[in-house]
Amino acid sequence: MASVSLLSTKGLSRHFGGLKAVDNVDFTMREGEIRALIGPNGAGKTTFVSLLAGRIAPSAGSIEFLGKDITNLPAHKRVRDGIAYTFQITSIYPTLTVFDNVALSAQSALRRHPRSNQSDIAEKVHEALGRVGLEDRKGEKAGTMAYGHQRLLEVAMGLALEPKLLILDEPTQGLSDSEIESFCRLVKEIATSATVLLIEHNMPVVMQLADTITVLNHGQILAEGSPSDIRANAAVQAAYLGTG
Protein backbone atom coordinates (compact mmCIF):
# COMPACT_ATOMS: atom_id res chain seq x y z
CA MET A 1 0.00 0.00 0.00
CA ALA A 2 1.10 3.55 -0.60
CA SER A 3 2.58 4.30 2.76
CA VAL A 4 2.36 7.94 3.73
CA SER A 5 5.02 8.81 6.27
CA LEU A 6 3.44 10.62 9.22
CA LEU A 7 6.46 10.94 11.42
CA SER A 8 10.11 10.18 11.00
CA THR A 9 13.28 10.72 12.99
CA LYS A 10 16.83 10.79 11.70
CA GLY A 11 19.77 10.08 13.97
CA LEU A 12 17.72 11.13 16.98
CA SER A 13 19.82 11.06 20.15
CA ARG A 14 19.52 12.18 23.71
CA HIS A 15 22.41 11.84 26.11
CA PHE A 16 22.29 12.45 29.85
CA GLY A 17 25.89 12.96 30.82
CA GLY A 18 27.55 9.72 29.73
CA LEU A 19 24.28 7.82 29.44
CA LYS A 20 22.95 7.43 25.91
CA ALA A 21 19.25 7.17 26.68
CA VAL A 22 18.35 7.45 23.00
CA ASP A 23 21.13 6.79 20.54
CA ASN A 24 21.00 7.59 16.84
CA VAL A 25 17.47 6.37 16.17
CA ASP A 26 15.98 6.38 12.66
CA PHE A 27 12.28 5.75 13.05
CA THR A 28 9.35 6.08 10.66
CA MET A 29 5.60 5.75 11.19
CA ARG A 30 2.90 5.35 8.55
CA GLU A 31 -0.33 7.22 8.78
CA GLY A 32 -3.13 5.13 10.26
CA GLU A 33 -1.12 2.35 11.85
CA ILE A 34 -0.95 1.19 15.44
CA ARG A 35 2.70 1.01 16.37
CA ALA A 36 3.93 -0.54 19.58
CA LEU A 37 7.20 0.49 21.15
CA ILE A 38 8.57 -2.16 23.47
CA GLY A 39 11.83 -2.87 25.23
CA PRO A 40 13.22 -3.72 28.64
CA ASN A 41 13.12 -1.20 31.46
CA GLY A 42 15.58 1.59 30.85
CA ALA A 43 15.66 0.96 27.10
CA GLY A 44 14.85 4.62 26.49
CA LYS A 45 11.18 4.31 25.48
CA THR A 46 9.86 7.16 27.55
CA THR A 47 12.82 9.37 26.65
CA PHE A 48 12.18 8.63 22.99
CA VAL A 49 8.51 9.61 23.06
CA SER A 50 9.33 12.62 25.21
CA LEU A 51 11.59 13.75 22.37
CA LEU A 52 8.75 13.24 19.90
CA ALA A 53 6.34 15.21 22.07
CA GLY A 54 8.88 17.96 22.69
CA ARG A 55 9.02 17.57 26.46
CA ILE A 56 12.80 17.34 26.22
CA ALA A 57 15.20 18.57 23.55
CA PRO A 58 17.35 16.14 21.55
CA SER A 59 21.14 16.16 21.78
CA ALA A 60 21.35 15.43 18.06
CA GLY A 61 19.21 14.40 15.12
CA SER A 62 15.95 15.63 13.66
CA ILE A 63 12.23 14.92 13.78
CA GLU A 64 9.86 15.39 10.87
CA PHE A 65 6.09 15.39 11.21
CA LEU A 66 3.80 15.60 8.17
CA GLY A 67 6.75 16.63 6.05
CA LYS A 68 7.71 19.51 8.35
CA ASP A 69 10.83 19.67 10.51
CA ILE A 70 9.61 19.99 14.09
CA THR A 71 12.93 19.37 15.86
CA ASN A 72 12.96 22.81 17.41
CA LEU A 73 9.24 23.31 17.77
CA PRO A 74 8.12 23.81 21.39
CA ALA A 75 5.89 21.14 22.89
CA HIS A 76 2.69 23.15 22.88
CA LYS A 77 3.00 23.89 19.17
CA ARG A 78 3.51 20.21 18.39
CA VAL A 79 0.25 19.51 20.19
CA ARG A 80 -1.45 22.00 17.92
CA ASP A 81 0.11 20.32 14.91
CA GLY A 82 -1.47 17.08 16.05
CA ILE A 83 0.86 15.19 18.38
CA ALA A 84 -0.90 14.29 21.62
CA TYR A 85 0.85 12.68 24.54
CA THR A 86 -0.86 10.89 27.40
CA PHE A 87 1.25 10.60 30.49
CA GLN A 88 2.59 7.39 31.94
CA ILE A 89 1.66 8.56 35.42
CA THR A 90 -1.96 9.62 35.38
CA SER A 91 -1.82 13.34 34.89
CA ILE A 92 -5.32 14.69 35.06
CA TYR A 93 -6.48 17.74 37.02
CA PRO A 94 -7.84 16.05 40.14
CA THR A 95 -9.59 19.13 41.54
CA LEU A 96 -11.44 19.97 38.32
CA THR A 97 -14.53 18.22 37.04
CA VAL A 98 -14.32 15.55 34.36
CA PHE A 99 -16.02 18.00 32.02
CA ASP A 100 -13.44 20.75 32.63
CA ASN A 101 -10.57 18.31 32.17
CA VAL A 102 -11.73 17.37 28.70
CA ALA A 103 -12.95 20.89 27.94
CA LEU A 104 -9.35 22.08 28.22
CA SER A 105 -8.36 19.68 25.44
CA ALA A 106 -11.38 20.56 23.36
CA GLN A 107 -10.62 24.24 23.78
CA SER A 108 -7.05 23.65 22.66
CA ALA A 109 -8.18 21.75 19.55
CA LEU A 110 -10.90 24.24 18.67
CA ARG A 111 -8.40 27.05 18.30
CA ARG A 112 -7.78 25.55 14.86
CA HIS A 113 -11.36 26.48 14.02
CA PRO A 114 -11.98 30.17 14.44
CA ARG A 115 -15.44 31.29 15.54
CA SER A 116 -15.97 28.31 17.78
CA ASN A 117 -17.86 28.92 21.00
CA GLN A 118 -18.73 27.40 24.36
CA SER A 119 -21.35 25.07 22.90
CA ASP A 120 -18.81 23.70 20.39
CA ILE A 121 -16.56 22.90 23.35
CA ALA A 122 -19.40 21.18 25.18
CA GLU A 123 -20.21 19.15 22.08
CA LYS A 124 -16.63 17.98 21.65
CA VAL A 125 -16.35 17.10 25.33
CA HIS A 126 -19.52 15.09 25.05
CA GLU A 127 -18.17 13.23 22.04
CA ALA A 128 -14.78 12.42 23.60
CA LEU A 129 -16.34 11.28 26.87
CA GLY A 130 -18.77 9.16 24.86
CA ARG A 131 -15.94 7.38 23.08
CA VAL A 132 -14.33 6.31 26.35
CA GLY A 133 -17.64 5.70 28.10
CA LEU A 134 -17.45 8.37 30.79
CA GLU A 135 -20.28 10.64 29.63
CA ASP A 136 -22.40 10.16 32.74
CA ARG A 137 -19.52 11.16 35.02
CA LYS A 138 -18.84 14.57 33.55
CA GLY A 139 -19.94 16.43 36.69
CA GLU A 140 -17.69 14.45 39.03
CA LYS A 141 -14.42 15.71 40.41
CA ALA A 142 -11.77 13.89 38.40
CA GLY A 143 -9.65 13.03 41.43
CA THR A 144 -12.47 11.19 43.17
CA MET A 145 -12.94 8.64 40.36
CA ALA A 146 -11.51 5.13 40.42
CA TYR A 147 -8.05 4.69 38.90
CA GLY A 148 -9.34 2.89 35.80
CA HIS A 149 -11.69 5.76 35.08
CA GLN A 150 -8.91 8.30 35.54
CA ARG A 151 -6.90 6.47 32.86
CA LEU A 152 -9.89 6.62 30.55
CA LEU A 153 -10.22 10.32 31.26
CA GLU A 154 -6.58 10.74 30.32
CA VAL A 155 -7.33 9.06 26.98
CA ALA A 156 -10.42 11.22 26.48
CA MET A 157 -8.25 14.30 27.01
CA GLY A 158 -5.92 12.98 24.32
CA LEU A 159 -8.81 12.29 21.96
CA ALA A 160 -10.41 15.69 22.38
CA LEU A 161 -7.17 17.21 21.13
CA GLU A 162 -8.09 15.69 17.74
CA PRO A 163 -4.59 14.32 17.31
CA LYS A 164 -3.14 12.91 14.15
CA LEU A 165 -0.72 10.99 16.32
CA LEU A 166 -1.72 9.80 19.78
CA ILE A 167 1.12 8.65 22.00
CA LEU A 168 -0.06 6.38 24.82
CA ASP A 169 2.60 5.80 27.45
CA GLU A 170 1.85 2.52 29.25
CA PRO A 171 -1.92 2.99 29.17
CA THR A 172 -2.86 -0.38 30.67
CA GLN A 173 -0.61 -0.15 33.68
CA GLY A 174 -2.61 -0.74 36.84
CA LEU A 175 -5.80 -1.77 35.02
CA SER A 176 -7.69 -4.97 35.74
CA ASP A 177 -8.03 -7.70 33.10
CA SER A 178 -11.57 -6.75 32.14
CA GLU A 179 -10.56 -3.09 31.95
CA ILE A 180 -7.65 -4.02 29.69
CA GLU A 181 -9.98 -5.86 27.37
CA SER A 182 -12.29 -2.92 26.88
CA PHE A 183 -9.25 -0.69 26.61
CA CYS A 184 -8.00 -2.69 23.64
CA ARG A 185 -11.35 -2.25 21.91
CA LEU A 186 -11.05 1.46 22.56
CA VAL A 187 -7.58 1.71 21.04
CA LYS A 188 -8.75 -0.12 17.91
CA GLU A 189 -11.61 2.31 17.63
CA ILE A 190 -9.26 5.28 18.11
CA ALA A 191 -7.02 3.94 15.37
CA THR A 192 -9.79 4.53 12.84
CA SER A 193 -9.28 8.27 13.22
CA ALA A 194 -5.68 8.64 14.41
CA THR A 195 -2.31 6.99 14.25
CA VAL A 196 -1.39 5.42 17.57
CA LEU A 197 2.03 4.98 19.15
CA LEU A 198 1.78 2.68 22.11
CA ILE A 199 4.41 2.07 24.76
CA GLU A 200 3.41 -1.08 26.51
CA HIS A 201 4.80 -3.78 28.77
CA ASN A 202 1.84 -6.10 28.55
CA MET A 203 2.83 -8.42 25.64
CA PRO A 204 -0.62 -9.92 24.94
CA VAL A 205 -1.92 -6.37 24.49
CA VAL A 206 0.94 -5.50 22.16
CA MET A 207 0.49 -8.67 20.09
CA GLN A 208 -3.22 -8.10 19.81
CA LEU A 209 -3.14 -4.42 18.86
CA ALA A 210 0.04 -3.58 17.00
CA ASP A 211 0.40 -3.54 13.24
CA THR A 212 4.13 -3.10 13.66
CA ILE A 213 6.38 -3.45 16.67
CA THR A 214 9.58 -1.51 17.27
CA VAL A 215 11.93 -2.94 19.89
CA LEU A 216 14.22 -0.53 21.66
CA ASN A 217 17.26 -1.67 23.64
CA HIS A 218 20.02 0.48 25.13
CA GLY A 219 18.59 3.47 23.32
CA GLN A 220 18.85 1.87 19.90
CA ILE A 221 16.38 0.10 17.63
CA LEU A 222 17.03 -3.60 18.05
CA ALA A 223 14.36 -4.90 15.71
CA GLU A 224 11.26 -3.82 13.87
CA GLY A 225 8.53 -5.86 12.20
CA SER A 226 5.14 -7.48 12.44
CA PRO A 227 4.15 -9.17 15.71
CA SER A 228 4.97 -12.60 14.31
CA ASP A 229 8.40 -11.41 13.06
CA ILE A 230 9.20 -9.99 16.46
CA ARG A 231 8.01 -13.10 18.21
CA ALA A 232 10.40 -15.13 16.07
CA ASN A 233 13.35 -12.75 16.35
CA ALA A 234 16.19 -14.35 18.28
CA ALA A 235 17.87 -11.10 19.25
CA VAL A 236 14.66 -9.78 20.70
CA GLN A 237 14.10 -12.97 22.60
CA ALA A 238 17.58 -12.75 24.03
CA ALA A 239 17.27 -9.09 25.03
CA TYR A 240 13.71 -9.01 26.13
CA LEU A 241 11.23 -11.80 25.67
CA GLY A 242 13.71 -14.41 26.85
CA THR A 243 13.62 -12.91 30.28
CA GLY A 244 9.86 -13.39 30.62
Binding site: R55, H76, F87
Partner: peptide, 20 residues
Protein backbone atom coordinates in the same frame (compact mmCIF):
# COMPACT_ATOMS: atom_id res chain seq x y z
CA UNK B 1 -10.18 27.55 32.70
CA UNK B 2 -6.66 27.48 31.24
CA UNK B 3 -5.27 29.71 34.01
CA UNK B 4 -6.70 27.41 36.66
CA UNK B 5 -5.26 24.45 34.76
CA UNK B 6 -1.84 26.11 34.89
CA UNK B 7 -2.27 26.61 38.63
CA UNK B 8 -3.13 22.94 39.10
CA UNK B 9 -0.53 21.41 36.76
CA UNK B 10 1.54 23.52 34.42
CA UNK B 11 3.33 20.71 32.56
CA UNK B 12 0.08 18.99 31.72
CA UNK B 13 -1.39 22.23 30.45
CA UNK B 14 1.63 22.76 28.21
CA UNK B 15 1.14 19.25 26.86
CA UNK B 16 -2.46 20.06 26.04
CA UNK B 17 -1.11 22.57 23.56
CA UNK B 18 -1.28 25.80 25.54
CA UNK B 19 1.56 28.29 25.53
CA UNK B 20 1.68 28.48 29.31
Amino acid sequence: RVLIAIRENETRTLMLGFDT
